[in-house]
């Protein structure tokens, strides 16, 4: 089983960090084969921020994500850009705070990611952690325990707040799956 995940948003939303946390959780704690990559350097200084994570039970060869199984978009721009490179089955996670116009024919899962972040940690930047919780709850591609351990390991301060944000995301992710 191989899952290709694309995380996208704009610079400053913590997309790259989220991809590293996701990759670390899946590889170190869930013991999966994982490959993370991101747009690098000068090319990363534009508007759109993008990072890819491949999670697999077997060895990962080709390092690029062509059409992801899961696409997270935190901005309208990134939504519009990356729905051009998906397949019919791609599960698209959307933040309704910034993404107002969606293509209804697609497999969209709309959540109030930024609102939940603001309610939980009072910080917009935590939306990336909420999104990771949603990915875990909705798809099970990474375990909640693994993400929790990774966050504990990664953050020097604000661990509790971030775990709260993660759990909130996980909860609505599970809800989204059932609903």
């Amino acid at each position: 089983m191989k899952t290709e995940i694309r995380l996208a948003g704009s610079g400053g939303q913590g997309i790259i960090l989220a991809s590293i946390l996701l990759a670390e959780a899946a590889s170190i704690y869930d013991q999966k084969n994982v490959l993370q990559s991101q747009v690098y350097g000068a090319a990363a200084r534009g508007e759109i921020s993008k990072a890819d994570v491949i999670i697999s039970d077997s060895e990962i060869y080709f390092p690029e994500v062509r059409s992801p199984d899961i696409l997270l978009t935190l901005t309208q721009d990134s939504y519009d850009t990356f729905i051009k490179h998906i397949k019919l089955t791609t599960l698209i996670i959307v933040d309704d705070f910034y993404v107002k116009t969606i293509d209804k024919s697609l497999n969209n899962y709309v959540f109030s990611i930024t609102d939940i972040a603001l309610n939980t940690t009072q910080k917009r930047i935590s939306s990336n952690i909420v999104a990771l919780g949603i990915i875990s709850g909705l798809t099970g591609v990474v375990s909640l325990d693994a993400l929790t351990e990774t966050i504990k390991n990664h953050f020097k301060e604000g661990v509790q707040k971030n775990i709260e944000a993660l759990y909130m995301g996980y909860k609505i992710g599970i809800g989204g799956k059932n609903g």
């Binding site: 590293i20 490959l35 390092p63």
Partner: peptide, 10 residues
């Protein structure tokens, strides 16, 4: 190369 240098693996 740029890919091997920048991609992350365990």
């Amino acid at each position: 190369d740029e890919v091997i240098g920048h991609m992350r693996e365990k």
